[in-house]
Every structure is written in C-alpha cells, then in structure tokens.
Nucleic acid binder design. Structure first.
Lengths: 111, 111
DNA sequence: GGTATATTCAACCATCCGGTTGAGCGATCA
DNA sequence: TGATCGCTCAACCGGATGGTTGAATATACC
C-alpha cells in the first residue's frame, strides 16, 4: 500500500532502473533489448521493469511475444514538483508562499 | 558506494522522511521536536535523520546537548536536475503543486 | 508438429530497512 | 553530586529487495 510518491522515489533509487529510464528516453524497447547492456540476468531486468511499471514510470505493451516498454514521464512530474518545492522555497514561511500560490493560481496561470 | 542520487532518492522514498523534510521547511528543529508528531520511537526518528543527513538533504549541528536539524535544499536540486533531463515537464506545474500542498502539508506529520 | 525465442514465475539466498527496546553518554541543572 | 534531559548505539526481529537458477508459458518460425 505504498504511496505513489513512495513508489516513484523508491524506483528511482536504483541505478539500474535509472539507466533503464535513460535508455527508454531514446526509444521504446523490448525487454530483451533493455536487458542487453546489463551484466545481470534477464529475469532481474524483467523485475526491474515491473517495479518501474508499478510506479507508473513506464508502460508495457505486449505485441506478439515481445513486450514493449515505453517511458511515461508524467509519473516523474509529480515527484519533480515535490522536489522543486523545496529547492525553490528554502526555509521561508509557508503562509507567504500560500498567498503567492493563491495569487498565481487566481491570476489564471495555465502552465 | 551508493551513488549520491541513490541516497537522495532512497531517502525520499520514505513518507516519514518526506514529512520530516516538510517540517524542516518551516524552521530548524531539534531531534526531539522532530520526533514529537510521529508515532514511532525517538531512536527510529534519529536514524531517519541520519539517513537524511547522509544524503545531504539536511545538516545537523550539535549545540549543547541539543542537535539542530536544518534543511539543505541543494541536495534536492541535483536530483531535480536529473529528473528535468527527462524533459517534457515544465519548470513548475502549479496544479500539481497545489495537490502537493494538500497532501503533504495537510496530511503531513501525523502518519 | 516441433523447435527456437521472449518473457515471466518460483524458489532460494544474502543483504538492507524500518521498527523495537534497553543501555550508554555527554550536557544541563537543582 | 546526582538526577534528568537529549540523543545515539547495539542487538534483535520481520519483511522487503536484488540477485541467482531452472522450470513454465506463450508466441513465432520451419
């Protein structure tokens, strides 16, 4: 019952999984091709991919006997926003920041 | 051995530690005060703080018999940059940030 | 049909993680 | 000096994690 942020950050905490995401940045890949550069077993890579999929960081689509893996950057967005909040704000008072948010959102900020 | 990114993401993967960081956003705190809202032992919180410090996310300064904990947002910046590399996400999604305020600050420290 | 390919499952192992409790230790204060 | 406070350490426990190997499943090819 891990929170979504728990899953995303935990998935990102492993260097193999980060490397996989980086590979998928270029193109969708089959499981076997994802596994190719790594010195671990195919089964291990398959489970890494399951972790990434559970966190929503990738999606997997079965086509024939090949399972294609696709990066899903939306899952990163939530975590990225969480982190940027700290980077931006630093130790400053939240009330002021909430007022800032109200004016920003109220002004119809559309991304 | 663990890469710095490994440590940062692993530290962020725990909801208690994220709640601690959120608390420290408002002000520096002593270990005992950090532990106060949580239903776990002081020793457990102390170790959470050590994990955060090892990841560089907080710094700790001993003053008398009290150890003060201070947020260090720079460590987050590195991880945030890593995520930015996946592109497609704007610098700050205000809607997502509003959800962050609701969930992390609202539900915050009482888990 | 039979064989090769793509992927997962299951069992197992070592290690890590988050929690506990109880002892220990330096700093403070009456 | 002795009691208390603030915090950490050490040992322990149960469950998760990351790796392995070997069997299983399903699809594709000849």
């Amino acid at each position: 019952m891990a929170d979504r942020l728990d899953q995303v950050f935990a998935a990102l905490a492993d260097p193999t999984r980060r490397a996989i995401l980086t590979m998928l940045l270029e193109d969708d890949m089959a499981v076997t091709d994802v596994a190719q550069p790594f010195a671990i077993s195919l089964a291990a890579v398959s489970r890494h991919l399951q972790v990434l999929a559970a966190a929503g960081l990738i999606s997997q689509e079965q086509r024939g006997r090949v399972k294609w893996c696709k990066l899903e950057p939306d899952a990163l967005r939530e975590a990225s926003v969480w982190m940027q909040a700290f980077g931006m704000m630093g130790p400053l008072d939240l009330d002021a920041f909430e007022r800032f948010l109200d004016t920003e959102l109220g002004a119809g900020a559309d991304d």
